[in-house]
């Protein structure tokens, strides 16, 4: 259908401006970086180590927290209980509070003096300055994306299908794994991608919990602070391209999975 058919002419113009607003800074950054700079930066072990750390911590965190977030989303979609609205509000809290404030809150929660920190130190673990701490900070700010997407997915599965499965002799757990989960899978996968992506880009909460080992957003900030824009830009470009690649790959997976089902 023609873009302007039955639509005021001003709409695509205004929309185009918004798109330009998003694309212009990214394009400018990309065009200001030479292939040689990118190549040289990619050979810096500090950069590659930081990128790997960011990716694996965000991925591990997403998978680990999904084990709790998905059942919680199912309960929120299916059950009615006292203070359900309050629980829904609590889940959205990390989205609305400043991430540096979230970092302070997490630091108090996992520092050596906290109960959790003390328990962890008994088995030789220290969250602060450790990938574990980074993971906790990433999860705190990104988990609402997974819970909300999964809850919407489960809500979209007709309850009658689950009742039919129970009537056919399946246990509630079997019904969850054979009916609810496969049918809500597209939303859940979208939620996982959003959580992973949000974890990759987290800066404010992580810098307070763990400056070192350095995840890429902190590395970019540090290079900008110490050496300026010219030195920080190639790292930023590489990281953005990697994030885009992951994003496209996962979106493609969701599409394929959906086409199959």
């Amino acid at each position: 259908m023609q873009l302007t058919k039955n639509t005021p002419l001003i709409f695509p113009l205004l929309g185009g401006l918004v798109l330009l607003f998003i694309l212009a800074p990214l394009a400018s950054m990309l065009l200001s970086t030479t292939p040689v700079q990118l190549f040289d930066t990619l050979h810096e072990s500090e950069v590659t180590a930081s990128i790997w750390l960011t990716i694996w911590v965000s991925m591990a965190t997403t998978l680990l927290f999904a084990a709790g977030a998905i059942p919680l989303a199912y309960i929120l979609a299916r059950k009615n209980f006292a203070f359900k609205s309050l629980v829904n509000g609590i889940i959205d809290l990390p989205i609305v509070i400043p991430h540096s404030a979230a970092g302070i809150a997490i630091l108090g929660f996992i520092s050596r003096n906290s109960a959790l920190g003390k328990a962890a130190s008994l088995v030789g673990l220290n969250f602060i300055g450790h990938p574990l701490g980074i993971g906790v900070a990433m999860a705190f700010v990104s988990i609402p994306f997974l819970i909300n997407a999964a809850r919407d997915g489960f809500s979209g599965v007709p309850y009658k299908l689950e009742q039919a499965a129970l009537n056919l002799g399946a246990s509630p757990a079997t019904v969850f794994f054979t009916v609810a989960l496969p049918l809500a899978w597209r939303n859940i996968l979208s939620g996982l991608i959003m959580m992973f992506g949000r974890g990759l880009s987290e800066f404010g909460a992580v810098i307070i919990v763990a400056y070192h080992p350095m995840i890429t957003p902190i590395l970019i900030y540090e290079r900008f602070n110490s050496f300026g824009l010219q030195y920080a830009r190639p790292v930023a470009v590489i990281f953005i391209l990697i994030c885009l690649a992951f994003f496209l790959l996962f979106r493609l997976l969701v599409k394929k999975k959906y086409a199959k089902t």
Binding site: K160, A164, A165, L166, N167, L168, G169, A170, V179, P182
Partner: peptide, 26 residues
């Protein structure tokens, strides 16, 4: 799941993630 009554819903409630055989086999 322990009652020996089988219900057929007005809107069928077949599982869309399974084919006909898998639905019957469920």
């Amino acid at each position: 799941q322990l009652r020996k009554v089988g219900i057929v819903f007005q809107d069928y409630a077949l599982f869309p993630n399974m084919n006909v055989r898998e639905n019957i086999e469920y």
